[in-house]
Structure formats: C-alpha cells, structure tokens
Nucleic acid binder design. Structure first.
Lengths: 115, 115
DNA sequence: CATGATACCTTGCTACGAAAGGTACCCGGT
DNA sequence: ACCGGGTACCTTTCGTAGCAAGGTATCATG
C-alpha cells in the first residue's frame, strides 16, 4: 500500500466534510475532486461507508437527485453540526500538522526563518 | 479514540526517523520529544513495534547503553537507507498535507494570497 | 523489603481504508 | 432487440496500524 494513503486515514472524513461544505456533492464526484487536489489515492469504495458514518452522526444529509445519462445521484449537504465538527477537525489538523512539520525540521531552525 | 491520533498513523514512523536522524535516541525519550512538539497522543507501547519494524527494514540500528538510575537504554541511530527513506516520506508528506490544506481552503483562494 | 520511577517489550482490540465485487441505470452502436 | 461501457451506488473481505493494558527488569529510596 502507498504510505501516503495511510496519512489520509483520519483526515478523509474531514476532507469530505470540507468538500460538501463548499458545495453539495455526491460520492462519485468527490473522488474526482480529491484527485484534482492531489489526493489521488482514494479508492471509490472507501468513501461510501464514510459518508454513511458522517450522516449517522448528523454531520451531513443525503438526498437523491435525478441525472440524465446515468442513475440518480446521492448528493450530500452539510448540517450545522457538521460545520462545527469541521472547524474542530481543521483546528486539530493544523495543530498536528504543525507538530509534524516541527519534528521534520528538527533542530535546524536557522534555515526556517530566512534564506 | 482521539481523531488526531488517527492522523498520526502513517506519519509516526517518519517522525521517529526524523527524531533519530537529528540525534540518536531511545524509545522512552522519543515519546517525550514527540509530546514536546505537540504530538501528545502517542502511547508508549505504540512505538516499540514501530522501532522494530524500522530496524528490520534497515532504516535504523539499535544498541544498548548503560544508564545510571534505571535499566539500560536501547538507543537507535539512523542508517543511510533510513535517511533516504526519510527524504521520500517527507516529500510525500509535504505533497499530501498541501493537498489537504487545499481541500480545507476550498474555493476561497483570495484570502490565501495576502491579507 | 516494598514502593515507585525508569525503561523495555508483548498481547488483544478496534478502527479504518484498500481491493474487489456486485447492482442498476442509461446511452449508443449493431 | 441486444450488448458494451460509462455513470453511480453500495457491500464484503482483508490487512494494517495505533491504542490500551499488562508484563518484566533495573535501580534508588524509605
């Protein structure tokens, strides 16, 4: 398995929430959007359980919309609880990713400040 | 479980490698160092299997050092292969974390450029 | 000698995405 | 009328990986 996909764990749900917040979307399309952002490692089957979980927790709400040229799409829109959760997760992500960055830079602070 | 610990998955090994590269260290101390950087979520038992795995792959090398006031410490130093792997993982991390950041910022590019 | 801190390691548990497979709809070609 | 292929959904099986908890050993202290 790709090492990077491991990083996605625990962040995928946050990403889905962020995508839906920007604009309601459906599963098949979200995979595309993630790929556009460089997260090309998400297999399609992975996100459906995630979406169900998010809905069960009241973060998002699904609804079907007919489409021409294919089966109906299940769009999801974000709920108030979802927005709050997204804020929390985003804060957490920022904190953790900053910590990782710090570990990576180690003691070499001199080159971080300025060239 | 904390959501943030999920994020650590797939990044912890990279962090350990980074810590050891900066300066040889032992398990008990690495947990402390991680906590200092804000990654307070790592339980001690988690990192020993990781260290063994890293050694098995030839990324690091362990050696015991006597200590006063406690049992001997198992220090690890980084190997050449480990340094290469660290570079690769770090590049991957940068790419993925940038992607996540982009998803989080969504379409709101205007506030990213400048205040 | 018992307690507690340091320091190592192991064993179940659970969570979560990957991979693969399955269903169904709709269009276009033959 | 039939079949292939793209769209779009969902489910099941599997492996990985950290967490939680527990176990062992060393050394200092009361």
């Amino acid at each position: 398995m790709e090492h990077s996909s491991q990083v996605l764990k625990g962040v995928l749900d946050m990403c889905l929430l962020a995508i839906i917040e920007e604009e309601p979307s459906y599963g098949y399309e979200m995979v595309d959007k993630l790929q556009e952002k460089g997260l090309e490692l998400v297999s399609e089957g992975s996100i459906y359980p995630l979406l169900s979980r998010l809905q069960k927790k009241g973060y998002i709400q699904g609804y079907f919309v007919e489409s021409q040229g294919g089966p109906p799409r299940k769009y999801y829109r974000i709920e108030a609880a979802g927005q709050e959760q997204l804020r929390r997760w985003a804060r957490e992500w920022t904190r953790v990713s900053a910590g990782v960055e710090e570990v990576l830079n180690g003691g070499e602070r001199e080159q971080t400040a300025d060239a």
